[in-house]
Computed example of a mutant assay.
Amino acid sequence: MNRLHINHLFIFLVFALALSSCSAIEIFEENNEIPIKRPYKSFVIINQEVGMRGFSSELIDEQVQIHLQEALEAQGLVYDKTEPELVIRYTSNEDPRKRETYQNNNPYPYWGYRVWDPWMYNPYFNNQNNPKTSTYELVQVIVDFIDPKEDKLLMTLTGVTEVSNQKTKSKKVLKTTDKIIDYFLYEVKDTQ
């Protein structure tokens, strides 16, 4: 192998490792009362207008409002409080959970010393797998896209991700919000 090929392989492995360490974000589409009929030019975020919080954290709630508005304005939509063509409402479901993982405390590798006495260091025989409980939070970001003229839901998109560290929670919520916006904008472009 030449040096360039080895460098490309190394970069690929590092990239694959980085991707595998990120938790997945899944998007679910629900509650379509009417189909998307046209591209939208203006929008309003109802949470912002009526002072309704969608998240338990005031900081994350404010970040989501700003992020939604900036992302839609970057796509050419205009924020209009009086006569919007699209009404957006968001909320969340933040569900604390626990999971058990098993950790092997065998101080010896599975090779080497086992040649002389395979039962002495067998992790299944000695029951050396100790359960460890870890906590995480299952976060659902739920965004309703509403047609105000017909007062019906165009769609509800729910983004689901796991948060194991409160320091990264806002970052994961914003990534989930991005995926929801991308999904909705793709559906709007698909109808044109």
Score class of each variant (00 low, 15 high):
99 R>S: 11
99 R>M: 11
57 S>R: 15
113 Y>R: 12
85 E>V: 07
64 V>N: 00
83 E>W: 06
51 G>I: 01
103 Q>F: 01
113 Y>G: 05
104 N>M: 00
58 E>A: 14
113 Y>V: 14
99 R>H: 11
88 I>P: 07
97 R>W: 01
72 L>M: 12
89 R>V: 03
105 N>A: 10
104 N>T: 02
61 D>N: 15
102 Y>P: 10
63 Q>M: 14
73 E>W: 15
112 G>R: 09
110 Y>V: 09
56 S>L: 11
104 N>E: 07
81 K>P: 02
114 R>I: 06
66 I>G: 12
72 L>V: 05
114 R>Q: 04
85 E>S: 14
72 L>T: 10
96 P>K: 12
87 V>W: 10
77 L>K: 11
80 D>F: 03
87 V>C: 10
98 K>N: 02
102 Y>I: 08
98 K>T: 13
102 Y>A: 06
67 H>G: 05
59 L>M: 14
107 P>E: 02
62 E>L: 15
59 L>P: 12
55 F>D: 03
62 E>Q: 15
115 V>H: 00
63 Q>I: 00
115 V>A: 03
76 G>N: 09
54 G>N: 00
77 L>V: 04
93 N>D: 09
81 K>C: 00
67 H>N: 11
58 E>N: 14
50 V>A: 05
79 Y>G: 04
82 T>G: 00
73 E>A: 06
69 Q>T: 15
94 E>C: 05
84 P>C: 01
59 L>W: 15
62 E>C: 06
114 R>W: 05
111 W>S: 13
83 E>M: 05
75 Q>C: 05
66 I>M: 13
75 Q>M: 06
60 I>Y: 13
87 V>R: 11
85 E>W: 02
73 E>N: 15
114 R>K: 09
108 Y>L: 08
97 R>C: 02
51 G>Q: 12
48 Q>M: 07
61 D>E: 09
92 S>Y: 09
84 P>T: 05
68 L>R: 02
92 S>P: 12
54 G>R: 09
113 Y>K: 15
88 I>W: 02
102 Y>W: 02
53 R>K: 14
68 L>V: 01
74 A>E: 08
75 Q>W: 03
49 E>C: 06
108 Y>A: 07
74 A>H: 11
74 A>Y: 07
86 L>N: 07
